[in-house]
Amino acid sequence: KVTYHVPNEEFARKLYKKAVDANLNVEIRVENGQFIIHIE
């Protein structure tokens, strides 16, 4: 399980798409202006 803290929405979207394309379980949320992405 990996967690990324991404300040940039564009990068967060790319990361999310890559994980989904790889059939990984992804959860994304915004906290204090940062995008928190959990990948399992």
Rank of each mutant, 00 (worst) to 15 (best):
N8Y: 09
H38E: 15
R13Q: 07
V2T: 07
T3S: 08
E31S: 08
K17A: 10
R13D: 02
V30H: 08
A12K: 03
A22K: 06
E40W: 15
I37C: 03
G33I: 07
K17H: 05
H5C: 15
E31G: 05
N8R: 02
V26A: 08
N32Y: 07
L15G: 01
V26S: 01
E27K: 09
G33F: 07
E9T: 04
I28M: 12
K14N: 07
K17S: 05
G33C: 10
A22P: 01
I37G: 00
I39E: 01
E31D: 05
N25L: 12
A12M: 09
A12R: 05
N23K: 10
T3K: 06
F11H: 08
Q34H: 11
V6Q: 03
V20N: 03
I36R: 03
K1C: 15
E27I: 11
T3Y: 09
N32G: 09
N23G: 15
V20M: 11
D21G: 07
K1L: 09
R13I: 09
H38D: 11
V6Y: 06
R29M: 08
I28F: 10
F35W: 15
F35A: 01
Y4A: 03
P7G: 13
R29P: 00
K17N: 07
K1R: 12
Y4C: 15
Y4M: 07
V6L: 10
E31A: 08
Q34P: 01
N25W: 14
D21P: 04
E40M: 14
P7R: 14
H5V: 14
Q34I: 15
A12G: 02
N8I: 09
F11P: 01
N8T: 08
N23E: 05
V6W: 07
V20P: 01
T3R: 06
V26K: 00
V6N: 04
Y4T: 03
P7F: 15
E9V: 08
H38Q: 13
V26Q: 00
N25S: 11
N23Q: 09
I37D: 00
I28S: 00
V26D: 00
V20I: 12
I39S: 01
D21E: 13
G33R: 03
K1S: 13
V30L: 08
V30R: 07
E10H: 07
E40N: 12
N23H: 12
F35E: 00
N25T: 11
Y16F: 09
F35N: 00
K18I: 13
K14W: 15
N25R: 14
H38P: 00
R29Q: 07
G33Y: 07
F11V: 13
N32H: 08
E9C: 15
V26C: 03
N32A: 07
N8G: 06
H38V: 15
V6K: 04
P7T: 15
A19R: 04
V30Y: 14
E9K: 06
V30A: 05
K14D: 07
T3P: 04
F35S: 00
E9D: 04
V2K: 10
V2Y: 12
A19M: 13
I37V: 11
H5T: 13
N32F: 10
N25F: 12
N23A: 07
I28Y: 04
P7Q: 14
D21M: 12
K14R: 12
G33M: 04
A22N: 07
K18E: 09
H38L: 14
L15K: 02
N25P: 05
E31T: 07
A22Q: 07
V2Q: 08
K18M: 14
A12C: 15
F35V: 05
V20D: 02
N25I: 13
P7V: 14
N25C: 11
D21K: 10
Q34A: 10
R29N: 05
Y4H: 04
E31N: 05
E10S: 08
E9N: 04
H5N: 08
N23S: 06
V20W: 06
Y4I: 13
R13L: 12
N25Y: 13
R29H: 10
E31L: 11
V26G: 01
Q34L: 13
H5K: 12
Q34N: 09
A12Y: 08
E9Q: 06
Y16H: 02
K14I: 12
N23M: 10
R13E: 04
L15Q: 02
E10W: 11
V26F: 06
K18V: 08
L24R: 03
L15P: 02
E40R: 13
N23F: 15
R13M: 13
I28Q: 01
R29G: 02
D21S: 10
Y4G: 03
E9Y: 12
V6P: 06
Y16P: 00
V2E: 05
E40Y: 15
N23I: 15
A19Q: 02
D21Y: 09
K18Q: 12
N8P: 05
I39W: 04
I36F: 10
A12Q: 02
Q34W: 15
N8S: 09
N8E: 05
R29A: 04
E10V: 05
E27A: 07
I39L: 04
I37K: 00
Y4W: 10
H5D: 03
V20E: 04
A19L: 15
L24N: 01
P7N: 14
K1Q: 08
K1N: 09
A19D: 02
P7Y: 15
I37F: 03
Y16S: 01
V6H: 04
V6R: 02
K18L: 14
K17Y: 07
E27T: 14
I36A: 03
E27P: 00
I37L: 08
K1M: 09
Q34E: 10
L24F: 08
A12V: 06
N32C: 14
D21C: 12
V20A: 06
E31F: 09
K1A: 10
Y4D: 02
V26E: 00
I37E: 00
F35T: 02
I37R: 00
I39T: 01
K1T: 11
L24H: 02
Y16G: 01
K18D: 08
I36V: 10
E27L: 09
V2P: 04
I36K: 03
Q34G: 08
I39P: 00
N8Q: 04
K1W: 15
Y16A: 06
E10Y: 09
A22G: 06
L24S: 01
T3W: 11
G33N: 05
I28T: 01
Q34C: 15
I39N: 00
H38S: 15
N32Q: 05
I28G: 00
E10K: 06
E10A: 10
R13Y: 11
K14P: 01
K18W: 15
L15I: 09
A22S: 07
E40G: 11
L24M: 06
K17L: 09
P7L: 14
R13A: 05
E31R: 08
N32W: 10
G33W: 14
E27Q: 10
H5A: 10
E27M: 10
T3D: 05
R13T: 04
Y4L: 12
F35D: 00
I36E: 03
A12P: 02
L24K: 03
H5W: 14
L15V: 06
D21T: 08
F11R: 07
E10G: 05
G33K: 03
L24P: 01
V2M: 09
A22M: 13
V6M: 09
R13K: 09
E27S: 14
I39M: 04
N32M: 07
E40H: 12
E9A: 08
N8M: 10
K18F: 14
E40L: 12
I37P: 00
A22H: 07
E27N: 06
E9H: 05
G33P: 00
E9L: 11
I37A: 01
Y16T: 01
N32T: 04
T3E: 06
V6F: 12
P7E: 14
N8H: 05
I39F: 06
Y4E: 02
I39A: 01
P7A: 14
H5P: 04
I39G: 01
G33A: 03
H38A: 12
R29S: 08
N23P: 02
P7S: 14
P7K: 15
E10L: 06
K18P: 01
H5R: 13
N32P: 03
G33H: 03
Y16L: 07
V6T: 15
F35M: 03
I39Q: 00
E31M: 09
F11E: 15
A12I: 08
L15C: 15
F35I: 07
K17W: 10
F35H: 01
A12L: 12
V2D: 04
I28N: 00
Y16C: 11
F35Q: 00
Y16Q: 02
K17V: 06
L15S: 01
E9W: 14
Y16I: 08
N32E: 05
L15E: 02
E31W: 11
